[in-house]
Simulated scan of single mutants.
Amino acid sequence: MRGLKKQRRIQIVIVATLALALSAGLIGYAMRDGINFFRPPSEIIANPPPPTEVFRIGGLVEDGTLIRGEGETIRFSVTDGGASIPVTYTGILPDLFGEGEGMVGTGRLVDGTFIATEILARHDEQYMPAELIDALEAQGVYRHAEGDPES
């Protein structure tokens, strides 16, 4: 009887360990495309990612580069003050999107052009992702306004 209880405990521990390993593997598999790294244009120019890698780019929409009217495709450049990357996006842009405004896009870099699948615009004057603020501050383009909390 005693050996049977010990054997049953060992079986339970083995099954629990296998279930934990399987669930960790499934979570990792599900997140493989869900983790997008943010990169400013200067970093992309210095170290271009492969065309298969999905990542986020952020910066300011460069003045004079926004081209509409080519069907649903919109072309513009995003800059962090140190470098500029051309972007194409097919779809409807957010209402607050415009030249000189902050944006974050998700997509891939193909032949030097960022092909965006999603574009986000900041929703008011105060909001900007922390990574974007850090990148723009490093380039000397952005300063916190008086009364703004530092990130």
Rank of each mutant, 00 (worst) to 15 (best):
A21R: 09
A83S: 04
Y29W: 12
G100R: 04
R108T: 14
R39L: 02
H144E: 14
G81H: 09
D148F: 01
F114T: 11
F76Y: 09
L66M: 11
L93D: 11
D111G: 10
F76M: 08
I85M: 03
F55P: 13
P40Y: 05
L96H: 13
N36L: 02
V110F: 03
P86Y: 12
A21Q: 06
I44D: 03
G105T: 13
V87G: 00
L22T: 15
L120E: 15
E62D: 12
R75Q: 10
L18F: 03
A130W: 14
S151Q: 13
A30N: 08
G140S: 07
D95A: 11
S42C: 08
A30S: 11
S77F: 09
A121C: 12
S151F: 15
S42I: 05
L109F: 13
E99K: 01
M1Q: 05
Q7R: 01
S84C: 05
F114R: 10
L60W: 12
L132S: 13
A46F: 10
D124Y: 02
L96R: 15
D80L: 06
G69C: 09
K5D: 07
G28N: 15
R122F: 01
Y127N: 01
P41M: 04
R143C: 00
I119V: 04
P149Q: 14
I44L: 05
G82F: 00
E99P: 04
P48C: 01
T88G: 06
G81D: 02
R2I: 03
G105W: 03
R2D: 01
R143E: 13
F114W: 14
E150Y: 09
G64V: 08
D33F: 07
G105C: 11
P51M: 07
P41K: 06
A19Y: 13
F37M: 09
F97P: 02
A83G: 05
M1S: 00
G34T: 05
Y142P: 09
E99A: 12
P51W: 06
V61Y: 12
L26W: 15
G105P: 07
A138E: 04
D63W: 01
D95M: 08
N36D: 02
E53C: 06
E99N: 02
L136W: 03
A116E: 08
A21W: 02
F37Q: 03
S42L: 04
T90A: 10
I133M: 15
L93V: 05
